[in-house]
Design a protein around this nucleic acid. Sequence first.
DNA 1: CGAATTTGACCAGCGC
DNA 2: GCGCTGGTCAAATTCG
Length: 274
Amino acid sequence: MANDEGENKEYQQYDPFVYNQLDMNRTILQQQPSLDPAFMSFTNFMDTSLEYNSVWRALDVSCSSSELISPVDDMSKKKASNASVSSSSDEAAPAAEDDSVKSKKEEKRKKQNAAQKKEKREREPRFAFLTKSEIDQLEDGYRWRKYGQKAVKNSPYPRSYYRCTSQKCVVKKRVERSYQDPSLVITTYEGQHIHHCPATLRGHSSPFYASASTSTLATAPSSGPALPQQLFSHLLSKNCQTDPTSMMYQNLNLQQHLQMPDHHSLLQDLFTQK
DNA sequence: CGAATTTGACCAGCGC
DNA sequence: GCGCTGGTCAAATTCG
């Protein structure tokens, strides 16, 4: 709502695929599936501009899924987050909840909310895009833990909230389905990964890392991002690219190059420009 | 049995 | 001030 206004500014600033939006969710839903030139999602662009698979072929990206790996030490993460919130207070007594415990809990909660509030002002850049998919939880190479689900106003489909399960990584994503076109999944990423993509760590499965580090376009790794999300996750990763500005720049280039017959020039741009 | 998900409760921010 | 909505927490439940 009003929150969205602030967020929209971020979208306008950072998201190369969602232009001129006053309300990200509403605009997406209202404008879909019509393809206003002023608004075109990555997936729609690929769906309409050229054969979807040809892009990934051009990128030397073959499809792969279930490339998930890294084990998650969630308990320690939980503890760490708790400690950061109530570092001075002891662990809550697990026994019977008397009033003092309850008030302690409330106090803890208020501290958490205050911390959240603070974080909100320094919100991470967000990137939203649409994907045509039957599946809600799209594979992007990272491990996510669902921490909430909310009914969306004017939509029969709920919105799910996910956090990256990697320690100290605060990247979040929201996933919801368009009520106008249920085949569309709206995914919003917030923040940048501070770690390698788990899929990448296992056997160089990402051509993006490989290419980015070596700039060897001829090398065709056996697998890689199968979906736009995966591509964007790679691009979002600090290990792959550094800042939202370059990210946007590259994405804009991506859009431009997708219209060109020679897709290899895209790779050149993606991996040589910083 | 530990990890992941579900779900109701809670809170902040905004509009009226 | 009240109601609505988005976002998050955390206990309960389910899953592997």
